[in-house]
Amino acid sequence: MSPAVRRAIALAALAGLGVALLVACLGLPDFGHPRGPYATAVIPLSLDHRHVTSAVAGVTFDIRGIDTLGEELILFSAAVGATVLLRSQRAEEDARDAIERHHELAERTPAPVRGLGAALAGPLLVLGVYIVAHGQLTPGGGFQGGVVLASAFLLVYAAGHFIRLGRVKPESLVEAAEAAGAGAYVLIALGGLVFAGAAMENFLPYGTTGELLSGGTIPVLNAAVGVEVCGAIVLILSELLDQAMLRHEDA
């Protein structure tokens, strides 16, 4: 099929879909007035029942706790899948040659870039831990904080003196962190089954609402998610960066 024909068919089909979507939009709740009864019902549930001030954390880790478990496992398997795909195709000798050339390239990384990377990594690490630790109180949590943590490590990778996150020891550490995070979430879900009679049910003391250690299992779940997200993102991005560098060498 020629591109022009395909474009014409696509435009016709999308025009039809667009009209259908606009008609469907007319049946949605008026903007600014949510109709769902859960919008208001989950707030006392989060505040009084789960003792968390962030209603989003209450929904994510209590009401939709099992869904979040599934989401964790999607993240885990996607990271594993992407890693397997990217690693299967890079011949070991190629990689070793590329690393040697990286070392030469590393010398050419300008000192200000390296300095800025090193200076930003520390504060980013603290910010990431802060966001993970306050997930049940303020906006944030394991997913968001985990990405901030991962960016701190990747900054070291990208701007640092080519401290290889891949290849040597840290690689297995990253993989272990990812697996440990996913495993910890599953264990906490099972802990609810063992100690409280239902999966994901809280089995830790609730503490005082609004304090750092409150919300029962939710801060622990946030920590598990934070470790897993950080591991998964570092793993995926460092594999993709490796590919970019191998390509670069080929060219």
Binding site: V42, G58, T60, A79
Partner: peptide, 25 residues
């Protein structure tokens, strides 16, 4: 605002990021 859809969106973002990673690989 409704916290339920915000939690759904959190899931959405995570799934999108992971799916793009696999597709890019």
């Amino acid at each position: 605002v409704d916290p339920v859809v915000q939690a759904l969106m959190l899931t959405d973002v995570v799934v999108e990021a992971t799916v793009s990673a696999v597709l890019l690989a």
